[in-house]
């Protein structure tokens, strides 16, 4: 009786395991970060104006432009923080598809010792209003 119970438990486990193996390959949702950073923002200005302001921002105090290609809408600039640590910002500008304005997307790459800059889009916004 005990043995029968044990065998049926094993059989149930194997069935469940096989069912798991045979389930269709459904893509799983990526886990959401607890520290999600804002990476894109719509600026209510035409592309030309947004481009000029971002280029000015990228070459501002402590920052240096690495590459800029207007046809692509891409600017990469570097910020050197204390003790020679660096943050590189890849910035992509694209005319908004939903109406007027320019969508600005920023992705950072940080050097060793540098801290992720979560306020970059706010500071770019600030430079737009000055």
């Amino acid at each position: 009786m005990k043995r029968q119970k044990w065998l049926s438990s094993c059989a149930a486990f194997i069935c469940l395991w096989l069912a798991g193996c045979w389930s269709p390959n459904v893509p799983k949702a990526l886990p959401k970060s607890e520290h999600a950073a804002q990476v894109e923002k719509l600026f209510p200005v035409p592309f030309e104006e947004a481009w000029a302001r971002i280029v000015a921002f990228g070459s501002g105090s402590g920052r240096k432009i690495v590459t800029a290609d207007k046809a692509s809408g891409l600017v990469t600039f570097v910020l050197t923080t204390g003790s020679e640590t660096k943050i590189f910002y890849n910035v992509l500008l694209q005319p908004s598809t939903t109406g007027s304005g320019t969508m600005v997307v920023v992705f950072e790459r940080t050097g060793q010792g540098a801290v992720f800059d979560s306020t970059i889009l706010d500071r770019i916004s600030g430079s737009f209003t000055n």
Partner: peptide, 8 residues
């Protein structure tokens, strides 16, 4: 990565 150069 860091985009070091891009020309469309």
């Amino acid at each position: 990565q860091v985009i070091a150069s891009a020309s469309k």
